[in-house]
Design a protein around this nucleic acid. Structure first.
Lengths: 328, 328
DNA sequence: TTGTATGCGTTATCAT
DNA sequence: ATGATAACGCATACAA
């Protein structure tokens, strides 16, 4: 079944009574004699010919793939990012080669080295481990992680974001703050959020704590931490800044279980600004990262040939958005 | 910059003092003389040679791409699906060619016809429009949509899901139910959820209503509908079944704005079972679709050569899970 | 302007 | 078992 072999330019050429080269010209929009044009087009239609991009890519040494490396697609920040990248790549007639690493260093390395075998126009990546071998001679942009010198990193101004969060909480009347984060101990963007937060608190003379937990066994450790700070139904903190929206959401659930109400007893700000369920509303008050603009910049950098801007890194501005877990 | 041209088998062959064919054999694990083996391996290492999959695919007429067509990646059901598909494809050494259609019929058609130009091993798709031209001679599986005769459709047992939802609400004490949905009026899986729901209600003699709204201007219409059914702070319904978890989430917010408490005043069950924020917990009580198993089945069907099962469609079982918006 | 012929990097079919 | 060579489908330099 399905034995019909692929129609090639040769077939079209034979059908139209012209040379293969002429067919190629027609397909590629290169001017050709009026009558040739028509007979070739007719033959293409009759045979239902379609060009073979595999062969085209090999011969012309040009392809239309861009590799996107992400840890996963269930984290809403990653999936939002992937969605925006997909839209942007489509706008540029590029196919998105999606590689998920699950945070596995070996898989990350394999994905990063894929272009050595599979020609692509560039790599857009967000990896967890930073000691990766990087392929040469191919445009790479990294999101949120400093991969190495000469590799542009697109991120948001997370220091200001942390500062903004602390400021907002304090303006909302909070007197005792805490910063909560989960994740790798490798230096990354989250540190800056903490830095900006800490600076704002210190500057204003407001007391604060921080709590970091390893990826796994997530919420239980946070619950222990919070319960340890609960005295007579009253929490030591009245303002929490969570390193991600995901975490903010979990913390909120923990607080509800502890019979604390949000935002009356405790105000929460999450970081990231992704909307759960693609809804119109944010599901917690949040510092919003400009995901769309970040994706756009990534694609522009990868596809532009001019290496001018390619050596810089970029910090895009963030802003605060109300989402129900703060007074305003 | 970057002028170093690609290392090919020829280069390796020259370096090792053997014929290109021998290099190919070594690369492909075909037995070769001991000494040849070693010299070729040494040359490969020295030159840092990597095979060109583009050429390999052209020549051998085999590639390792699978196209995945989805409307977007911000809807958590789609992104969860994409995540599972990605994991499964990696397990089978396949690359995921991700195409997002935004529900645009033209883009959907273009994506569907991509394999005519870009050779792939198969297509896994979830499209919104059903009158699409389908490419021949290539494995296709559809998720949730009946694309046409002979094209296998992977879905979950949504009729039972609807039945289950109604039953659960009634068991929890609800006396007056409503089914809420948004989306296209094209016949699809959502109809079955409604069908099963209706059957269960009728069977038990419990009154019910249904409300369908077009994709856009979402929540406002639902809010109008619910407010029209609000009398003296009391809603006509005490149990709501929402066609998606996304919708359930929005409805919950509307109810909260109306000063109704969930699940005390109104119980809600959403459909789909995706977890917002990849958390361990469901964010509403829900009928869970076996996304992981669906993805696994899709990939297995696409990659298996035996056409035995390929003509069937599959309905995977669903189950209920508590998520806080019902009594239990 | 159009046809001819070569090569992209690989695999497979031949002889050797 | 290995080397030479053709072919996959296309693009292009060159000749006509």
């Amino acid at each position: 079944m399905g034995g019909s072999k692929r129609i090639t330019m040769k077939d079209v050429a034979r059908e139209a009574g012209v040379a293969p080269g002429t067919v190629s010209r027609v397909v590629n929009g290169i001017p050709v004699g009026k009558s040739y044009q028509r007979s070739v087009e007719k033959a293409i239609e009759k045979l239902d010919y379609h060009i073979n991009r595999q062969a085209q890519a090999l011969r012309s040494n040009q392809n239309n793939f861009v590799e996107v490396i992400l840890p996963n697609l269930y984290n809403p920040f990653y999936s939002t990012l992937a969605d925006c990248l997909g839209r942007e790549l489509t706008r540029h007639s590029q196919q998105m080669l999606m590689c998920l690493t699950r945070g596995d260093p070996d898989l990350e390395q394999a994905c990063m080295l894929l272009p050595q075998q599979q020609p692509v126009n560039g790599v857009i990546c967000l990896t967890d481990h930073s000691d990766l071998r990087i392929p040469n001679d191919i445009p790479i942009v990294s999101i949120d992680r400093l991969l190495g010198p000469g590799i542009p990193c697109i991120t948001s101004d997370d220091y200001s974001g942390g500062y903004l969060a602390a400021q907002k909480l304090m303006n909302n009347g909070c007197k005792s703050l805490a910063f909560l984060r989960a994740g790798s101990s490798l230096p990354n963007e989250t540190d800056k959020r903490w830095g900006g937060f800490m600076y704002a608190c210190t500057d204003a003379g407001v007391s604060f704590e921080s709590m970091c937990v390893h990826e796994d066994a997530f919420s239980s450790e946070f619950e222990d931490f919070l319960r340890a700070h609960l005295h007579d139904g009253h929490l030591d903190f009245d303002g929490l800044f969570c390193a991600t929206v995901l975490l903010a959401h979990q913390i909120r659930n923990i607080l509800l279980r502890m019979k604390l109400s949000v935002p009356q007893d405790v105000q929460i700000i999450g970081y990231g600004g992704v909307k759960c369920f693609s809804g119109q509303e944010f599901c917690c008050s949040t510092i919003v990262r400009p995901v769309e603009e970040m994706a756009q910049l990534c694609v522009d950098l990868i596809l532009q040939t001019s290496p001018k801007l390619f050596s810089c890194s970029f910090q895009l501005p963030v802003y605060y958005a109300f989402g129900g877990t703060t007074n305003q």
